[in-house]
């Protein structure tokens, strides 16, 4: 089942909530939620895949790093993430690893009038918890 996501109120910035049955789905949903903030109707183009290998001190740290990786690809490389295929591992010491790939479409910044700038995903009130048989994350973006 696909992840569900939505936005949270914040006076200055913008929060995202994401829910999914497993962590891979949740991280895919987080990319989708971020992508919809950045660009409501993504530009057409060929999807190119790029591998990703990230580490975090815990799940929240991994989620924030992952979203900031997508922000970096958007801001520095003009690449918008449209697809995600990743696996997340938690180690006994709490540290976490994300390995996989992201499907990206290149855009022309000169034609980016429909886009929204995201400075970063923040650690502010960031959460990633298991509730029953679902995972839920909340993360705030600096926009």
């Amino acid at each position: 089942m696909r992840a569900q996501h939505g936005t949270l109120e914040h006076t200055a910035d913008l929060g995202l909530w994401i829910e999914a049955e497993d962590l891979s789905g949740l991280f895919a949903g987080a990319a989708e939620a971020l992508g919809q903030v950045m660009w409501e109707n993504p530009p057409p183009g060929e999807v190119v895949w790029r591998s990703l290998d990230l580490r975090g001190v815990d799940l929240v740290d991994l989620l924030v790093r992952y979203l900031n990786e997508l922000v970096y690809l958007f801001d520095a490389k003009d690449l918008l993430c449209l697809k995600v295929d990743t696996a997340i591992d938690q180690h006994p010491d709490g540290s976490t690893v994300l390995v996989g790939r992201v499907g990206l479409v290149e855009f022309d910044p000169a034609q980016s009038n429909g886009a929204t700038a995201v400075k970063a995903a923040t650690y502010h009130q960031a959460k990633l918890v298991r509730r029953g048989n679902r995972w839920r994350a909340e993360v705030f973006l600096d926009v």
Binding site: V57, D61, R65, D75, K119, A120, T122, Y123
Partner: peptide, 30 residues
């Protein structure tokens, strides 16, 4: 612009795992 955003992100990431750092409950205040 993006340069400043990345500098902040770089140091928040480094501080998240730095033992010398001050780690308040609100992680963005590291």
């Amino acid at each position: 612009r993006g340069l400043g955003h990345q500098v902040c992100d770089d140091f928040l990431r480094r501080l998240a795992k730095d033992k010398e750092a001050v780690h308040p409950p609100e992680r963005q205040l590291v």
